[in-house]
Design a protein around this nucleic acid. Structure first.
Lengths: 182, 182
DNA sequence: GTCTATATGTTGATAGAC
DNA sequence: GTCTATCAACATATAGAC
C-alpha cells in the first residue's frame, strides 16, 4: 500500500492522486486504504517520515565513513546523490510534497530536514578546520551541495537506464571543487 | 487570471488546485476561467510556455553579456539563479508541473527545455576551448550548473526576505569552481 | 465578458456485511 | 482486514441570461 502510494504521488503529485488510484495500484478496494491510515494526508506523512529517516541515515553513514574531510565529503555527496536516484520515486515525494502535509506534520518533517543541513555544514567545517577547504559562506555552500544531490529527483528516471554511478561520481567530484579542496 | 493561477499552482500544485481556487483568487466566478482558457490544463500550458520563454531569454541574454568565458558563465549562473528567485512562484510551476501537461503540450515544453541545456553546454565548451575551464563531462557539468540554479525554487521563499543577490552571487562563484576555472 | 445555475463525474471517507 | 455500497462535498466544464 505504501509502495503504491509512493508510485502514485511521485507520478501525479499528492493533489493529483486520489485514494482510489492508490488502492487500485495496490490491488485493493478503495476502502482498504483507510484500514491502515486515517486519511490521505496520514498516508503521505508515513511516506515522508520513512523517506526522510532513510535519507538522513544514508547521509550520516557516509559522514562516518571516513576521517579525512575530502574523502568524507566525497562519500557524502556520492551516497546522497545515489540515494536520490536509487529511490527516485520515494525521494521525489520526500522532496516535493511537503506542502501537502498538515501544519503539525509539516513542522515535524521540517525539523528533521534541518538535520541534513547541519550534517553537511559539519562536513564543510571539518574541511575548513583541517585547512583543506576554502569556503567563505559555509551555510550557503552546504545548501548548494545538498541542492546538487536533491535536484536529481526532478529529472532522473530510473527507467531510462542512465548510469547513476557516473552521475553520483560527477556530483561528488564537483563537490570537492565547490569547497576549494586543495 | 494567469497570476492567480501561478500563485495557486505554486502553492498547492496543479492537482491540488481547483479551477474555483483560481477563479476566487482572481476575484471572478468559477465560470470566468473558461472564457480565456479551454481547460485547466490549457491554463497550465499558457503559464508553462510563458515561463519557459522568459527563463530562456534570461539565460541567453546573460550568455551574450560577455565574451570572456569565465565572466560569461558567472553572469549566466547569477542571472538564472536570480530569475528563479525573483520569479519564485512562476519558476516553481515551470519546474515542477510538467507532469500535468498533456502529451502534446509536454512534448512542446520538453523541446524548449533542451535549449537551456544546449546554451549551458555552449558556455562550458567556450571555456574549455579557451583553455580556461577544466571539465571532463561537459553534459553532466552543464546539468549540474543548471541544477544549482533550478533547485532554488524548491526552498526559496521571497516572503522570508533572504538576500537573493548574495545567493545568486554564491552560486555564480561556485559555478566557476565547478568548471575548474583557472 | 461576466454572471448564476447546473450537469455530470469524481473525491475523501464511512457503514456494515463477511 | 477485506469487501460492496454509499454519502456528502467537490471537481471540471457548460448553458444561457444580461
Amino acid at each position: 500500500m505504501l509502495d503504491a502510494a509512493v508510485d502514485a504521488f511521485a507520478e501525479r503529485g499528492f493533489g493529483g492522486t486520489s485514494t482510489r488510484d492508490v488502492a487500485v495500484r495496490a490491488g485493493r478496494s478503495p476502502a482498504a486504504v483507510y484500514v491502515h491510515y486515517d486519511s490521505k494526508e496520514a498516508l503521505l506523512y508515513a511516506i515522508s517520515l520513512e523517506g526522510h529517516m532513510a535519507a538522513l541515515d544514508c547521509l550520516k553513514l557516509a559522514y562516518a565513513s571516513s576521517e579525512d574531510p575530502a574523502a568524507r565529503l566525497h562519500a557524502m555527496v556520492f551516497a546522497f546523490s545515489d540515494w536520490h536516484m536509487e529511490n527516485a520515486r520515494l525521494a521525489r515525494v520526500v522532496q516535493y510534497e511537503l506542502h501537502a502535509l498538515s501544519k503539525v506534520h509539516r513542522a515535524d518533517i521540517v525539523s528533521l530536514r534541518r538535520r541534513f543541513h547541519r550534517v553537511m555544514v559539519g562536513a564543510v567545517r571539518d574541511g575548513i578546520r583541517a585547512g583543506q577547504f576554502q569556503v567563505d559562506d559555509v551555510n550557503g555552500t552546504a545548501r548548494a551541495l545538498l541542492s546538487l544531490c536533491i535536484d536529481l529527483v526532478r529529472w532522473f528516471d530510473p527507467a531510462r537506464g542512465r548510469n547513476s554511478r557516473a552521475i553520483a561520481q560527477l556530483n561528488a567530484d564537483l563537490a570537492l571543487r565547490m569547497v576549494g579542496d586543495v
